[in-house]
Amino acid sequence: PVYLSVKADNSMFIGNDPVTDETMITALNALTEGKKDTTIFFRADKTVDYETLMKVMDTLHQAGYLKIGLVG
């Protein structure tokens, strides 16, 4: 499974590897070998604001990742 996490300080990680807004999709493409039907499990600290969550989800959708599971 692929886990994308947003921490309380808005830092992002794919698994244990830090990513930025600019590198997130490139890292996901490498990890999933470009398979856009891969489910991305998205988790965020409860203090992360809604705007940040939606920005990340919008970026995922624009890149073609449509299977996003929200996890606690």
Rank of each mutant, 00 (worst) to 15 (best):
P1R: 09
P1N: 09
P1T: 12
P1W: 11
P1A: 12
V2P: 04
V2E: 01
V2N: 01
Y3I: 14
Y3C: 09
Y3W: 13
Y3M: 08
L4Y: 02
L4G: 01
L4W: 02
L4M: 07
L4Q: 01
L4R: 00
S5L: 13
S5A: 08
V6P: 01
V6I: 15
K7A: 10
K7T: 13
K7L: 15
K7W: 12
K7I: 10
K7D: 09
K7E: 10
K7F: 15
A8P: 06
A8N: 08
A8H: 11
A8M: 08
D9I: 04
D9R: 04
D9V: 06
D9E: 04
D9P: 12
D9Q: 06
D9Y: 07
N10H: 14
N10F: 09
N10Y: 12
N10D: 06
N10T: 07
N10Q: 09
N10M: 14
N10S: 11
N10K: 11
S11E: 08
S11D: 04
S11G: 06
S11V: 12
S11F: 07
S11R: 12
M12A: 02
F13K: 06
F13S: 07
F13N: 03
F13H: 06
F13E: 04
I14L: 14
I14Y: 03
I14M: 05
I14H: 01
G15A: 05
G15E: 05
G15N: 12
G15T: 02
N16F: 08
N16G: 11
D17S: 12
D17M: 14
D17T: 14
D17P: 01
D17W: 12
P18Q: 13
P18D: 03
V19I: 12
V19K: 01
T20Q: 05
T20L: 03
T20Y: 05
D21R: 15
D21Y: 14
D21P: 15
E22S: 12
E22H: 07
E22T: 10
T23P: 01
T23H: 07
T23F: 06
M24Y: 06
M24Q: 00
M24K: 01
M24P: 01
I25V: 11
I25E: 04
I25L: 11
T26M: 14
T26W: 09
T26A: 15
T26S: 15
A27I: 15
A27V: 15
L28P: 00
L28C: 02
L28G: 00
L28Y: 00
L28D: 00
L28T: 01
N29P: 00
N29Q: 07
A30Q: 12
A30G: 06
A30N: 11
A30S: 10
A30F: 10
L31Q: 07
L31D: 01
L31F: 08
L31H: 09
T32C: 06
T32D: 02
T32S: 04
T32V: 06
T32K: 02
T32P: 01
E33R: 09
E33T: 08
E33I: 06
G34K: 03
G34S: 07
G34M: 06
G34C: 07
G34I: 02
G34N: 09
G34H: 08
K35I: 07
K35M: 08
K35G: 04
K35C: 06
K35W: 06
K35L: 06
K36R: 11
K36H: 08
K36N: 05
K36T: 08
K36G: 04
D37L: 05
D37Q: 05
D37I: 03
D37P: 03
T38C: 07
T38N: 05
T38P: 03
T38V: 14
T38H: 06
T39I: 11
T39M: 15
T39S: 08
T39A: 11
I40K: 00
I40N: 00
I40Y: 01
F41V: 13
F41T: 05
F41D: 03
F41H: 11
F41A: 04
F41C: 11
F42V: 15
F42I: 15
F42W: 02
F42A: 03
R43W: 14
R43I: 15
A44E: 03
A44P: 10
A44T: 09
A44R: 03
A44I: 14
D45V: 03
D45M: 03
D45L: 02
D45Y: 04
D45E: 11
D45Q: 03
D45P: 04
K46W: 11
K46H: 11
K46T: 12
K46E: 14
T47A: 14
T47H: 13
T47Q: 15
T47S: 14
T47F: 10
T47D: 15
T47M: 12
V48P: 02
V48N: 03
V48F: 04
V48T: 08
V48K: 02
D49F: 06
D49T: 13
D49W: 05
D49I: 08
D49Q: 13
D49E: 13
D49H: 13
Y50E: 11
Y50N: 10
Y50V: 12
Y50K: 14
Y50W: 12
Y50Q: 13
E51Y: 11
E51C: 11
E51W: 10
E51G: 11
E51D: 11
T52M: 11
T52Q: 09
T52I: 13
T52F: 14
L53M: 10
L53K: 07
L53Y: 08
L53E: 02
L53F: 10
M54C: 08
M54D: 06
M54E: 07
M54R: 15
M54Y: 08
M54L: 14
K55N: 08
K55Y: 07
K55G: 07
K55T: 08
K55W: 13
K55A: 09
K55F: 08
K55I: 06
V56H: 05
V56A: 05
M57H: 04
M57G: 02
M57P: 00
M57S: 04
M57T: 05
M57E: 02
D58L: 11
D58E: 09
D58C: 07
D58Y: 11
T59K: 14
T59Y: 08
T59R: 14
T59P: 01
T59E: 06
T59V: 14
T59Q: 13
L60F: 03
L60Q: 00
L60A: 01
L60P: 00
L60C: 01
L60H: 00
L60G: 00
L60E: 00
H61R: 15
H61P: 00
H61M: 12
H61G: 06
H61E: 06
H61I: 13
Q62P: 00
Q62S: 12
Q62M: 10
Q62R: 14
Q62V: 06
Q62E: 09
Q62F: 07
A63D: 04
A63V: 04
A63K: 02
A63F: 05
A63S: 06
A63N: 12
A63H: 11
G64K: 02
Y65T: 00
Y65S: 01
Y65F: 09
Y65E: 00
Y65M: 01
L66V: 09
L66I: 13
L66Q: 11
L66N: 12
L66D: 09
L66T: 14
L66A: 05
K67W: 09
K67S: 12
K67A: 09
K67I: 10
I68H: 03
I68T: 06
I68L: 07
I68V: 14
G69N: 15
G69I: 15
G69W: 13
G69V: 15
G69M: 15
G69T: 15
L70R: 03
L70G: 04
L70W: 12
L70M: 14
L70S: 08
L70F: 08
L70P: 05
L70A: 06
L70Q: 07
L70E: 07
L70N: 06
V71D: 08
V71P: 07
V71A: 06
V71I: 13
V71T: 10
G72E: 14
G72S: 13
G72T: 14
G72A: 12
